[in-house]
Write a protein that binds this DNA or RNA. Sequence first.
RNA 1: ACGGGUGUAGCUCAACUGGUAGAGUGGCGGUCUCCAAAACCGUAGGCUGUGGGUUCAAAUCCUACCACCCGUG
Length: 318
Amino acid sequence: MTAIQMTFNDPLLVVIAGPTAVGKTPFGIELAGTCSTEIISADSRQFYREMKIGTAAPSREELAKVPHHFVHHLSIHETYNVSRFEADALALLDNLFDKHRIAVMVGGSGLYIDAVCRGIDHLPDPDPVIRNDLKELLSVSGIEALRDELYKSDPEYAKVVDLANPARLLRALEVCRATGVPYSTLRSNKSKQRPFRILKLALELPRDLLYERIDNRVDRMLENGLFEEALALYPQRHLNALNTVGYRELFDHFEGLTSLEYAVTKIKTNSRRYAKRQLTWFKKDQDYKWFMPDDIGRVLELPECKMQKANIKIKNQL
RNA sequence: ACGGGUGUAGCUCAACUGGUAGAGUGGCGGUCUCCAAAACCGUAGGCUGUGGGUUCAAAUCCUACCACCCGUG
């Protein structure tokens, strides 16, 4: 219903998603460059300026080709979450659409992309004290304790959550404790209307090829100094941002728990698993149109993009 | 060449004195409205190197062969 109200004159957000290492970055730059617009990153780890190598963030040269937003704009010491990203991205898009008819969002963090496209219920920012208390409860009394509290404070949610997943329980309970209201009553599960059209594209490669690319990229990261980058961050390893593939495995090595060789193998394995989870997430969303990383030509022929190119031509002629 | 050892799931290994094979890991699939590159769940893989033999019954015992490892030459 809502989509029907949109016309080709409304601004367009093109989303480029896909598993890690599939080639989203060059694809996005090519597309944004052709449409002479800017890129919004939706990669929850490329936000952090201290993590350049291990997150395969766009290179200096790539960043110079097209204006990027939300790349290296945070420090690992800052707390950030999807809700803030939604707000930041919407504010930015509002600005971008003053100058451009099209914007490109590139990233692999499904939850973050969905927050921009569909919205996320607005809940109070987590209270670090409550969060720590709950973590304490978990480590001392186990997941049972979390379940027991959830049965009392939000029996409805207890029916639908994965009761084996501490992260889910922690989240629900921190909201219950902070608001004094059952978490489930604050979840609307409704998509929000956006003042722009959205075109969702996802990139894919045959599994064996993707895995090969992942392995190679990890090797390249190490050549480029991932070891040194991680070593420098080692003292801050407890920060959440660093609980990330490519760093945690090396931290284990620095700790003396594993060999370097093992750590590298583990980085590759965990990256593959991450890629699989990303694919599962994006495949579930029927809105995505799937392309190969070298299909940029076909994408530019899509009616939405064609129109944009036409507009550029007209502008240039004037 | 001789002596010893090992051959079990893609990989690393289990299976007491014979009772028709298990685990970790990887693979595959999925969940997920906020610390998400996180957290969690579910599955499929083995004619036990090959051929004989003993036995009601063999991964397990005997035998031949093959492969690999160690030692001596």
